[in-house]
Computed example of a mutant assay.
Amino acid sequence: MRPDDWYCTQDLTGFLAHAGGFLRSRPDLHTVALTVTETLRTSGLRAYGDEPPVFGVLELGGQVRAAYFRTPPFRLNVTPLGPDEADSLAAHLIALGHSVPGVIAARDTAEAFAAAWRRHAGGRSLVSQRQRLYRLGNLTLPNPLPPGRARVAGKEDRERLIRWYGEFIDAVGDHAARDAAAWADARIARGGITFWESGDGAPVAMAGVTRVVAGQVRVAPVYTPPHLRGRGYAGAATAAVSRSALTSGVREVLLFTDLANPTSNSLYQRIGYRAVSDFAAYDFRDDRGF
């Protein structure tokens, strides 16, 4: 496998024309690539920052075998690869002069690419998060449901959404993929966030859902303010958006969990989510620690 078996582009339309069929062939394993490229297609290439995104494809024998994208300054996201493919990708990116701050991918792929990056670029790689991808099977509503009801967030909820999105990003220890205000506006415009309201009508948790693409959606984010946790609100909100997605006719409802949080993993399994694959995120550091 050679580094020049890969090609790199900043042309989203061309990338999707070339790799779209491949991405849609496994909408579960490729869910992030599908939803991010759909956001870029509908909201513009600056949806995730000022620096243009980069896309790449591995093609062998006239068939697309793998794809990657990166929306700077965030980690590289890559579809499943074998060790040789991971090695050739690392060499390809280095030959192009690309700086890669980390990678997120299916666990074996992330491990293989992190090892390849160390061989080619030096430095260290550190695991920053281990995740599990789940797919909804038979939805089971929490029993009992907490008092209250589900409600789709509207324009009147904008400030709360901005605040809760920031709190969610802080809680998961990551960087915001989008400006909080832009994120809130986009979600409100398409009804992409559902609150669980307590009996007195106060929002106590939220669950979001991505755009429908390739017959799949992903539940994200799910957030309950710290002082309201442990009362079943997140489970109720997640069940509500999951049921709404199913009734809309999508084929797959997906979500990621942090494997370091056994509470959320147990919760999602109780309401009908089943494991698909484990993922890992690595951050890269040079010899000076940067």
Rank of each mutant, 00 (worst) to 15 (best):
W6L: 03
T9P: 08
D11Q: 09
A19T: 11
L23R: 12
L23T: 12
A33T: 06
L45K: 05
P52F: 07
F55M: 07
Y68R: 07
R70D: 03
L76N: 03
D84E: 09
S99M: 08
I104A: 14
A114H: 08
R118I: 15
S125V: 09
S125H: 10
V127G: 06
R132Y: 04
L136H: 02
L141P: 04
R151Q: 02
A153T: 00
D157N: 00
E159D: 13
L161K: 02
E167R: 11
E167W: 05
I169Y: 11
A171Q: 06
H175W: 12
A176N: 11
A177T: 12
D179M: 07
W183R: 06
D185T: 15
I193W: 12
F195H: 12
F195A: 14
V204P: 09
A205P: 00
A207Y: 03
G208W: 05
V209T: 14
G215E: 12
V222A: 13
P225Y: 06
P226N: 08
H227K: 12
R229H: 08
A237C: 10
A239E: 07
L246V: 10
T247L: 11
R251T: 01
S264N: 07
S264M: 00
Q269K: 08
V276M: 09
F279K: 00
D283V: 14
D283F: 13
F284D: 02
